[in-house]
Amino acid sequence: MSAATLWDRAFGAVLLGVAGVYAVDAWNIHVPFQYEPLGPTAFPLLLAAVLATTGVLLVARPDPVHWFTRRDQAFRVAAGAVVMGVYAALFVPLGFMISTALMTFAMARLFGLPAIKAAIYGVVLAVVGYFGIAEALGLNVPFGDIFRS
């Protein structure tokens, strides 16, 4: 068993677990009254059965998976995920403009843009984006809680 196939095996095992939890959850659905023979549990149970079967097959016959060839790739993906997570957390409290400027700066830096250019782009995108989206298109974007108090 090589390390490369371990990922598929692990994923197959997770699918098997999900199928189990899902099936138990489906089994416990309580229906007060029902006019049809199948009801809301039969289809999910069928899906759980298929998922469990395919999960077992994946564990038995996995494909090799290669994650990264270079270490900086892993860093950039992880950093990008963190940037987006922080963006989601700050979106409402700081408002669209500040959070977007920060996200844009960080994201552009990850793609190798020089700091000054990234900062300018962040501000431009935040301001143009806000007025384009909130004013011109009239969509609901947060102005920012911190400006309200």
Partner: peptide, 17 residues
């Protein structure tokens, strides 16, 4: 570097709205 922040911003705006 210019494209991805724009895409991320649009996805956030789209889902939030």
């Amino acid at each position: 570097a210019y494209l991805v922040p724009l895409v991320v911003m649009l996805t956030f705006v789209g889902v939030f709205s």
